[in-house]
């Protein structure tokens, strides 16, 4: 964002200082993000977009078709044979709510994803602040330990966790899956947010200290607002990961009244694959919220991605 802010004032000044116009435009041409990209870049982008959009669009069209139609002809025949338009139906969508109770599963998914996103961000932000701005013995060692834990995949802990939850009697509850997602999201969160905070100007924190701000005040008033891009980008990662997670949900929650959307979605399929026509509708329904989250937070996404990666 900082680079675009630096560039946008240029056209405004054009009229006021005619002599410098030439040199300025020449200089900005190289870096102007609005400049036309080469033709091949645009072709590649279009191809990549189409590769994603066409199957998704086909999925969407199929979800409105009757099962017999979908089994006997491709979705594009809706456009080649306009008579097929009249055979479109909302049956699949009403079926996923009556047959599988996707409504409850949607609420369950929210109940799992929101705490499993917010809690690790909160804890990790505290931890990242401490790692960045507070000096205490063993700080580097602790940080290295946490970063090293990034390589531990959640799968290796499935069985020990299941045993533990069984002993605690929380197997099958939301608490069980929150704890699993929070624990395994934490190392990435701490790493990402700490690296971002390390790029924040130290002078700001020092001046806050001089003004008598406590660590807590510095954190809430200064660091959190300044770290929004990193926090938001991690929130997207974690939310999408938890929302789309099937493995942990199957093991720690399992099918039943607490099941999230992912389990409800695979349960639409019968043992021999019957009911596949419902998957198209169910799949699209599952995608709605992640798309909304992504679109509403995407302006943070690119900034956040690069935020923690390069210091300086």
């Amino acid at each position: 964002m900082s680079s675009t802010q630096a560039v946008t004032p240029v056209p405004v000044q054009l009229g006021t200082d005619a002599t410098s116009v030439g040199s300025r435009t020449r200089r900005t041409r190289k870096h102007d993000p609005a400049a036309k990209s080469p033709m091949w870049v645009r072709i590649v982008l279009v191809v990549i977009c189409l590769m994603w959009i066409i199957p998704t669009f086909g999925l969407a069209m199929t979800s409105f078709r009757q099962q017999d139609d979908a089994a006997s002809s491709g979705w594009w025949t809706v456009f080649t044979t306009p008579a097929n338009l009249t055979r479109l139906t909302l049956q699949n969508y009403s079926d996923i709510f009556t047959k599988a109770d996707m409504g409850t599963a949607f609420v369950n998914s929210l109940a799992i994803s929101i705490p499993a996103t917010i809690i690790p961000i909160l804890i990790a932000a505290f931890a990242a602040y401490a790692f960045t701005f507070m000096a205490f013995p063993g700080r580097d060692f602790l940080l290295i330990a946490i970063v090293a834990l990034l390589v531990v995949p959640t799968q290796v802990a499935l069985v020990p966790l299941l045993k533990l939850y069984g002993q605690l009697g929380i197997s099958g509850t939301f608490l069980a899956i929150w704890a699993a997602h929070i624990g395994f999201g934490m190392s990435l969160a701490v790493y990402l947010i700490r690296n971002y905070m390390a790029t924040l100007p130290r002078e700001v924190i020092e001046s806050a200290k001089i003004d008598g701000a406590s660590h807590f005040q510095t954190f809430w008033r200064l660091i959190v607002p300044m770290s929004t891009p990193a926090l938001a980008s991690f929130a997207i990662f974690q939310f999408l990961w938890v929302w789309n997670d099937l493995l942990n949900a199957l093991i720690f929650i399992g099918p039943g009244p607490n099941q999230p959307l992912t389990i409800a979605l695979v349960s639409l399929l019968g043992q021999q694959g019957q009911g596949w026509q419902l998957l198209t509708a169910g799949g699209l329904f599952t995608m709605i919220l992640p798309i909304i989250v992504f679109l509403s937070l995407q302006r943070y996404f690119v900034r956040g991605l690069t935020a923690g990666s390069v210091k300086g």
């Binding site: 499935l158 069985v159 020990p160 966790l161 299941l162 045993k163 939850y165 069984g166 197997s171 199957l250 093991i251 399992g254 099918p255 039943g256 389990i263 695979v266 349960s267 399929l269 043992q271």
Partner: peptide, 28 residues
């Protein structure tokens, strides 16, 4: 308590390993 389980084969192995067994299971 009914537990209809997609991906039964993998899940039952995990449950056995984690000693969280159902009382009766239908093996496909």
């Amino acid at each position: 308590k009914f537990s209809p389980t997609p991906d039964f084969n993998n899940l039952i192995n995990t449950k056995v390993a984690g000693n969280q067994l159902p009382d009766i299971a239908f093996f496909p």
